[in-house]
């Protein structure tokens, strides 16, 4: 059973529908204690970092997540803002601490070309590490859908498993032990996105 963390930022339907479409049992976890009953965890997220981490902390999800993700090592996936909250701290609208699962700062996109817009909204070509099982079955240079103004700047290059070019390398995906995350939206990236979600369903991290 896959559990989607619902900490009150809304719009979980697309992620839910994608797993349902793939035929995987999936449930929305409205309460921190629900996480104990699922095998895999999805942390979605759209909006601002501060609102997101405040809600995760206030609802008691941060303790439950640390228990299930770090201690019980359940396969876990963050999407977009759900990836960013896994970092150490964010500079979006101030300076705020994240869950700290990745040694990384969340910083603003600063493309060198003034014609490039921020937020970056749209399809971008991703370069990925072909040895990672979560990317199995993807073609060379697949496109994924992104919507973001901030991104995760990882201090340990080993954590970064995919990037895209926005006049410089922007982190598109990270992986550490049982924790996987994408800045792009697999649930909005048609069949390549569904492929990644299927790979996550099948994933057995060591």
């Amino acid at each position: 059973m896959i559990g989607i963390v619902d900490y009150g930022m809304g719009n979980l339907l697309s992620v839910y529908n994608a797993f349902d479409y793939l035929g995987s049992p999936v449930t929305i976890c409205k309460h921190p204690e629900d996480l104990a009953h699922v095998d895999r965890i999805i942390i979605p997220g759209v909006g601002a970092f501060k609102d997101c981490i405040d809600k995760i902390n206030k609802t008691g999800f941060s303790e439950a997540l640390n228990q299930e993700v770090l201690k019980n090592a359940k396969p876990t996936m963050g999407i977009c803002l759900g990836m960013q909250v896994m970092g150490t701290r964010s500079f979006e609208g101030g300076e705020f601490m994240g869950l700290g699962w990745f040694d990384a700062d969340i910083v603003r996109l600063t493309p060198a070309d003034s014609n490039l817009r921020v937020p970056n909204i749209g399809w971008n070509t991703i370069k990925y590490n072909k040895e990672v099982p979560l990317f199995k079955g993807l073609p060379e240079d697949p496109d994924f859908y992104l919507v973001h103004s901030y991104y995760m700047k990882a201090n340990d290059p080993k954590d970064v498993i995919a990037i895209y070019d926005y006049t410089y390398d922007v982190t598109a995906s990270v992986l550490k032990d049982n924790i996987f995350a994408t800045q792009f939206h697999p649930e909005k990236s048609q069949d390549f996105g569904l492929q990644i979600l299927q790979n996550f369903i099948n994933w057995n991290p060591r």
Binding site: N17, A18, D20, Y21, V147, K188, Q190, L194
Partner: peptide, 11 residues
């Protein structure tokens, strides 16, 4: 839109 989102995975 709810019907659409069951099978359509794009923005």
């Amino acid at each position: 839109i709810n019907n659409v989102s069951e099978e359509i995975f794009m923005p």
